[in-house]
Design a protein around this nucleic acid. Sequence first.
DNA 1: GCCATGGCATACGCGGGCGTATGCCAACCC
DNA 2: GGGTTGGCATACGCCCGCGTATGCCATGGC
Lengths: 182, 182
Amino acid sequence: MIAQRPKRLTRDDWLAAGAKRLAAAGAEALKAEPMARHMKTTKGSFYWHFKDVPDFHDRILSRWETSALADLSAVLDGETGAVPRLRALAQSIAAPETGSATESAMRSWATTHAGARAALARVDEARLAALQDLLSETGIGNPEMARIIYAAGIGMERLGQTGAGDNHGSIGSLVDLVLALR
Amino acid sequence: MIAQRPKRLTRDDWLAAGAKRLAAAGAEALKAEPMARHMKTTKGSFYWHFKDVPDFHDRILSRWETSALADLSAVLDGETGAVPRLRALAQSIAAPETGSATESAMRSWATTHAGARAALARVDEARLAALQDLLSETGIGNPEMARIIYAAGIGMERLGQTGAGDNHGSIGSLVDLVLALR
DNA sequence: GCCATGGCATACGCGGGCGTATGCCAACCC
DNA sequence: GGGTTGGCATACGCCCGCGTATGCCATGGC
């Protein structure tokens, strides 16, 4: 139980709650009145902080993109050396500690929402580029390999939702397989 | 332009149209009144053929599951020998000729709809088992490898939506990588 | 302590999807 | 060729989400 008192909400409170709802219930939950009910307030507050529903959506997407790119940097900075970084990055894609549900909801949203599709494409691009750079450093120039690892990562993130399986181990094995090409 | 005349619709006409709409516009489009408008009829017809909207959804899911499992058999029957079958199966997962958009919409739907999640889990299970069997036949017993190939396949299906890349070639390279383990 | 704003509550009208009820018409049936 | 049934059309009442308008109250500035 935390702060039961914040009678006054900030715009970021709304965006943070929106991000949680997105992860928990999908993009369909990001509507003004349901959100207001969830926040135990009224939509008067919603329309004070946001122009309209699309505005809310855009800001949530922008927030997510920023944090996803920051997480990417954090993962890379958490290790030294190309191979350890490669492993850490692959793991974080296959099973992100914070945000597996969020990531999944974003991919779902992207199939119908143009803004989500664009934001996700930029994040995918950045991660793929990072993978490719690390592989190059270890002497693997073939760009197909980065694509294989990234695709396997996001695929496992989805398989992890239903069928129980060891993504952590599997993605590690794949990295081994690729590194054996040196 | 085909049959402009079918003034009388069958239940399967509705389901076929629903499958198309699902692929084109996502599960949100599978509502009674929008569907009726799309079919140039009224919801009187809809509620004649279906008890309610969930009933419509369930039948669409059931139809998709059946056809996905049939496609799986067809792909396997289209080749002889474990390795050719393995390649054909991997290709069909990464870039299904008919139904890349459908498959994507199903995965999106599965994040919020329990029935879709269950149907997709059964299909995933069947494909994964088929992959594993084929790998066993070629002498690769490690079940992680099937998981890696399948995850890469569904991941590439998603990457193909936005970033242009050669899924066909990449998944083939992955199969080569795994087969080199023999 | 007054008042000015910031932050919300309340109350509308609107559109759109749901499900039901009932009416209508075209085909078959004999 | 008159009835019966299958297949839709029309019309209702409902709920829910949108966006706006306006009212209210609690703080902080002076």
